[in-house]
Amino acid sequence: MGSVRTNRYSIVSSEEDGMKLATMAVANGFGNGKSKVHTRQQCRSRFVKKDGHCNVQFINVGEKGQRYLADIFTTCVDIRWRWMLVIFCLAFVLSWLFFGCVFWLIALLHGDLDTDYKDDDDKSKVSKACVSEVNSFTAAFLFSIETQTTIGYGFRCVTDECPIAVFMVVFQSIVGCIIDAFIIGAVMAKMAKPKKRNETLVFSHNAVIAMRDGKLCLMWRVGNLRKSHLVEAHVRAQLLKSRITSEGEYIPLDQIDINVGFDSGIDRIFLVSPITIVHEIDEDSPLYDLSKQDIDNADFEIVVILEGMVEATAMTTQCRSSYLANEILWGHRYEPVLFEEKHYYKVDYSRFHKTYEVPNTPLCSARDLAEKKYILSNANSFCYENEVALTSKEEEEDSENGVPESTSTDSPPGIDLHNQASVPLEPRPLRRESEIGSRR
């Protein structure tokens, strides 16, 4: 089982795998120059863009038009607004034209077009017409509009002379109601789609790998820009990579689940303020055997998904993003964004995407760390350097704002901070800030 798991979770494809794949392509008759073999020097295209759209195009789909027309309502909801407006206008105009032609044909076959009612006051002739005051196609078209929109100006009306005319008036009224219901329903469904809710759900630009509770963890940050909550919010993550099976089958995008606390339930989050999602790199993680150097040379993509129900409509929305291997910062942490004021908490989104480097973060893999092949620094050293990194950030910001350097908390000259780390230190809580992250 261990060997199978290692093969499945191998992220960085070796040169031997690339040569094996190329040999397979030639042997199977696919070596026509169009096949692409992804190596370390040639990274694959992003499968999920940063804005959440999937970078996929469908080609050679059989009976595409028929399949889309069979699900016309979903098609109308998914198309762009400009095409929705075109369909909206065409549906009414074509129905008016169709029934206008029908009423014109009825008048033509009944002989109503030969009668001039402007110079004739004989009401008996008017009563013999199928539709009064309809003696041309324009008049028939206007009567069709008046019937379907129930305008009723009063000059044109159907008589009991022709039952077919009466039937067409009733039929057009029913068709008009159906068109109204369909168009209004599609427009309302399109307006109520929770897709735009994703514009106020954000992911951090970069993911980070750092120590948390004595273990290497992959972390990324999510935030909600609205005050309205995302009900039943939960997160998922998958690692996408290519691999070759033991039988020699090439899988271009193998999807591997990344555990973010599904078993323990901590994948469900209360997204009021930005939260750091934590994936513990343990023996079940696809990143277990990867060191910093392996991450730098790897070719994979981590897709992160945030799902929840919109509070206003109770409709489920899904926000997506992805991180390539070069977008994962090893040995970094996110800057705090949640600050405790006197009577409330304040979230500073200008710090949302910012990170700071944490010294002495192990550069080895989580496996080597678990097997004690890498000796961690003293816990006080880690905490102290973590505090120094934050303090230096604040000093830089104070210097930019014009604060005198004498007010900063610099260490005395001639003292090495790293050498001082081995000395037991008193706890130094942050002056006014605390970061709330997901705790395992």
Score class of each variant (00 low, 15 high):
residue 262 F to G: 05
residue 111 G to P: 01
residue 176 G to D: 05
residue 138 T to S: 09
residue 334 Y to L: 03
residue 93 V to H: 01
residue 374 Y to V: 14
residue 182 F to L: 08
residue 143 F to Q: 02
residue 134 V to A: 03
residue 214 G to R: 14
residue 127 S to E: 04
residue 394 E to P: 04
residue 332 H to Q: 12
residue 426 E to V: 06
residue 223 G to H: 05
residue 417 L to F: 08
residue 172 Q to F: 01
residue 422 S to P: 11
residue 118 K to S: 00
residue 259 N to Q: 13
residue 268 R to S: 11
residue 362 P to Y: 00
residue 92 F to A: 12
residue 279 H to V: 01
residue 83 W to A: 03
residue 261 G to F: 12
residue 38 H to T: 13
residue 335 E to N: 03
residue 146 E to N: 02
residue 86 V to E: 03
residue 311 E to F: 05
residue 76 C to V: 10
residue 318 Q to G: 06
residue 112 D to I: 00
residue 269 I to P: 08
residue 294 D to E: 05
residue 342 K to G: 09
residue 399 S to H: 09
residue 301 E to S: 01
residue 408 S to P: 13
residue 389 A to G: 15
residue 206 N to Y: 12
residue 401 N to A: 12
residue 34 K to V: 13
residue 144 S to A: 04
residue 426 E to T: 13
residue 425 L to G: 12
residue 428 R to L: 09
residue 66 Q to M: 14
residue 255 Q to N: 10
residue 281 I to D: 00
residue 144 S to R: 00
residue 162 C to W: 00
residue 425 L to M: 07
residue 253 L to T: 14
residue 342 K to Y: 06
residue 353 H to N: 08
residue 301 E to P: 01
residue 235 V to W: 03
residue 344 Y to V: 14
residue 100 G to H: 01
residue 180 D to A: 07
residue 399 S to W: 07
residue 112 D to M: 03
residue 220 W to V: 08
residue 247 E to N: 09
residue 62 G to S: 12
residue 13 S to R: 04
residue 328 I to E: 00
residue 214 G to L: 09
residue 247 E to L: 04
residue 237 A to C: 09
residue 407 T to N: 03
residue 222 V to A: 04
residue 200 T to I: 07
residue 164 I to N: 02
residue 112 D to Q: 02
residue 303 V to W: 00
residue 246 S to N: 11
residue 313 T to K: 07
residue 397 E to I: 09
residue 154 G to P: 00
residue 226 R to I: 14
residue 103 F to A: 02
residue 226 R to T: 04
residue 180 D to F: 14
residue 83 W to L: 06
residue 80 R to T: 03
residue 182 F to N: 05
residue 49 K to F: 03
residue 317 T to G: 09
residue 38 H to M: 10
residue 251 I to C: 13
residue 339 F to Y: 14
residue 391 T to P: 12
residue 200 T to A: 13
residue 346 K to V: 03
residue 423 V to I: 09
residue 61 V to I: 10
residue 283 E to D: 03
residue 48 V to P: 00
residue 67 R to I: 03
residue 315 M to K: 08
residue 413 P to R: 05
residue 101 C to G: 15
residue 133 E to H: 08
residue 124 S to W: 15
residue 112 D to W: 00
residue 185 G to C: 13
residue 8 R to I: 05
residue 232 E to K: 13
residue 124 S to H: 15
residue 280 E to P: 10
residue 25 A to S: 15
residue 270 F to N: 07
residue 4 V to Q: 11
residue 226 R to Q: 05
residue 191 M to E: 04
residue 153 Y to P: 04
residue 331 G to W: 01
residue 271 L to R: 03
residue 151 I to F: 04
residue 416 D to K: 03
residue 128 K to P: 08
residue 17 D to G: 07
residue 164 I to P: 03
residue 332 H to I: 01
residue 205 H to R: 13
residue 305 I to W: 11
residue 222 V to F: 06
residue 163 P to V: 06
residue 68 Y to Q: 11
residue 78 D to R: 15
residue 246 S to W: 06
residue 413 P to V: 10
residue 283 E to K: 08
residue 109 L to W: 15
residue 111 G to R: 04
residue 117 Y to T: 00
residue 37 V to F: 05
residue 170 V to I: 05
residue 85 L to V: 12
residue 87 I to T: 15
residue 19 M to V: 11
residue 9 Y to W: 10
residue 77 V to A: 11
residue 259 N to V: 08
residue 161 E to I: 01
residue 125 K to H: 15
residue 424 P to W: 07
residue 404 P to H: 07
residue 275 I to S: 10
residue 373 K to Y: 05
residue 413 P to H: 07
residue 64 K to I: 11
residue 409 T to Q: 08
residue 148 Q to Y: 01
residue 220 W to H: 02
residue 373 K to P: 10
residue 387 E to N: 02
residue 59 I to R: 14
residue 199 E to R: 13
residue 41 Q to L: 06
residue 358 V to Q: 12
residue 39 T to P: 12
residue 371 E to M: 04
residue 189 A to L: 15
residue 223 G to M: 12
residue 210 A to R: 05
residue 100 G to C: 02
residue 251 I to M: 12
residue 203 F to G: 00
residue 399 S to N: 10
residue 37 V to H: 08
residue 13 S to T: 09
residue 159 T to W: 02
residue 103 F to Q: 07
residue 360 N to M: 12
residue 358 V to N: 02
residue 274 P to G: 12
residue 193 K to P: 06
residue 380 N to I: 05
residue 315 M to V: 07
residue 73 F to N: 14
residue 64 K to Q: 07
residue 4 V to W: 03
residue 346 K to I: 04
residue 411 S to Y: 03
residue 367 R to C: 02
residue 315 M to F: 06
residue 263 D to C: 10
residue 329 L to G: 00
residue 275 I to E: 12
residue 187 V to H: 07
residue 385 E to I: 05
residue 99 F to C: 00
residue 316 T to K: 06
residue 280 E to N: 13
residue 269 I to R: 10
residue 237 A to M: 02
residue 18 G to I: 06
residue 20 K to E: 10
residue 405 E to R: 09
residue 63 E to G: 12
residue 374 Y to Q: 15
residue 395 E to P: 11
residue 173 S to R: 04
residue 433 E to V: 11
residue 288 Y to K: 00
residue 54 C to G: 14
residue 52 G to F: 01
residue 116 D to P: 14
residue 288 Y to L: 00
residue 277 I to A: 06
residue 386 N to P: 04
residue 251 I to V: 07
residue 426 E to R: 07
residue 337 V to I: 11
residue 68 Y to M: 11
residue 139 A to D: 15
residue 414 G to E: 14
residue 27 A to T: 14
residue 27 A to W: 04
residue 388 V to S: 15
residue 85 L to T: 05
residue 16 E to Q: 08
residue 353 H to P: 01
residue 22 A to D: 13
residue 273 S to F: 08
residue 162 C to M: 00
residue 329 L to Q: 05
residue 288 Y to F: 10
residue 282 D to M: 09
residue 314 A to H: 13
